[in-house]
Amino acid sequence: MFVACESNQTPEEKLAEARIDAKIIDRYVHLNESFKRNKEDIDSTYFDVKYPILKLENYNSDSVINAQVFHDLKESIAGKGQSTIQKQMKDFVSDYKRFIKRHEDYKHNWTSQFRVDVSTYIPPLVVFKREMIMYTGGAHPNYGYAYQNFDADTGKEIKLEDIFVENYEHILEKIGETAFKQEHKIVGSLLDANFTFPRNKFYVPEEFTLLHKSIMFMYPLYAVAPYSKGSIHFEIPYTELKSIIKPNSIIQKITRK
């Protein structure tokens, strides 16, 4: 069975290949809260947020998509309650100020950064990537990222069940495991290759993004491998998934181009 070939490209480089140049960003919203211990300090403790406002030609769904992207960004920062992004930013800096009052010898700054941008645009497919990097002490910062795939024809976020037929899971898992092992050059078991899948059983993660000719799946940090392995992902060409792709799905729309 033919699966994705091994590549030295990063996920970001692969996404860049799928990006179509088009002016679809009306503007960016940039929020920042920062604090310097001393005026002469170069670095500071800060909480920084930046996200785009979409403006799509030939589609009426940009306001719906913008609202969903902001809702999910706000929820990832401030949770599902009544709190706001701005309050979380101020609280972050206030917490740092209280911390250094109790630990005067502490020399590090805290940082929190959230970035959202359009990673892929193949009309009617619009993909956003949300990245988070946070440091509040320790050996290294925490980071994470998530993708949101939208159909500009409808304004709806695309889920796996929107692109695959019913009962697709078993076939996707089988093809996915082959692709994963080839991507990471695994000959024996997953455990022997230092991947810590539960019960040493492969599974397809929920996180995915659609590209022009393939779908890419990504695992959360620490989910199946240590921090040192970095981003764990694998890619499956649409040609290998023909038997489970729904007729007239977004995949068929973008692969016609």
Rank of each mutant, 00 (worst) to 15 (best):
T178M: 05
I25W: 07
I77D: 01
L172P: 02
I53M: 13
R37T: 01
Y143W: 15
P52G: 05
N167P: 01
K80R: 11
K90S: 15
K107F: 02
P237F: 06
A225F: 03
K36H: 09
V69S: 14
M132F: 12
I133F: 04
F202Y: 12
S7W: 02
Y227V: 12
V64G: 11
P205I: 02
K201C: 11
D26A: 11
K39S: 11
N149M: 02
Y203L: 14
D117G: 10
R115Y: 13
N167E: 13
E40T: 09
K50S: 15
M216Y: 03
S7C: 03
P52T: 03
P124T: 09
D26T: 01
Y96V: 04
I85V: 14
S112Q: 12
V64N: 08
P124R: 08
K246S: 14
L210E: 00
S189C: 03
Y28F: 14
W110I: 08
H233P: 00
D41H: 13
R19K: 09
F35H: 15
P205D: 05
A193T: 00
D72S: 11
D162P: 01
F47N: 15
I53T: 12
A78P: 13
L56D: 10
H212R: 07
I215L: 00
Q9V: 02
E161Q: 04
D151I: 02
L211D: 00
F180Y: 07
P123L: 03
A22V: 01
H30S: 08
Y238S: 03
K90F: 01
F234C: 05
L56C: 09
K55P: 02
V126W: 07
F92V: 11
F114R: 13
P52V: 03
I245Q: 02
T45Q: 09
R98D: 12
M134C: 15
Y219E: 07
M132S: 14
T154K: 04
Q252L: 08
R199C: 03
W110M: 10
F208E: 05
E206F: 10
P11N: 06
K101N: 13
H212C: 05
L221N: 12
K50H: 04
T45N: 10
K253N: 10
Y106T: 03
I25K: 10
P220I: 09
E240R: 05
M1R: 07
S249Y: 00
P123A: 08
S249K: 01
P124L: 07
D153I: 03
F47A: 15
I171R: 14
D153P: 00
D117Q: 05
T45C: 08
F92I: 12
N32A: 13
F217L: 06
F217V: 10
I122W: 00
H233R: 02
S189I: 02
F128V: 11
G188N: 04
K159N: 04
K90V: 08
L31S: 14
D105E: 10
Y227A: 12
T84H: 06
L125F: 00
P226C: 06
H108E: 15
F114G: 05
E13D: 04
I24F: 13
S119K: 06
P205H: 07
A22F: 01
K159M: 04
E6I: 07
A16N: 06
R199K: 11
S214E: 08
Q82K: 14
D192F: 00
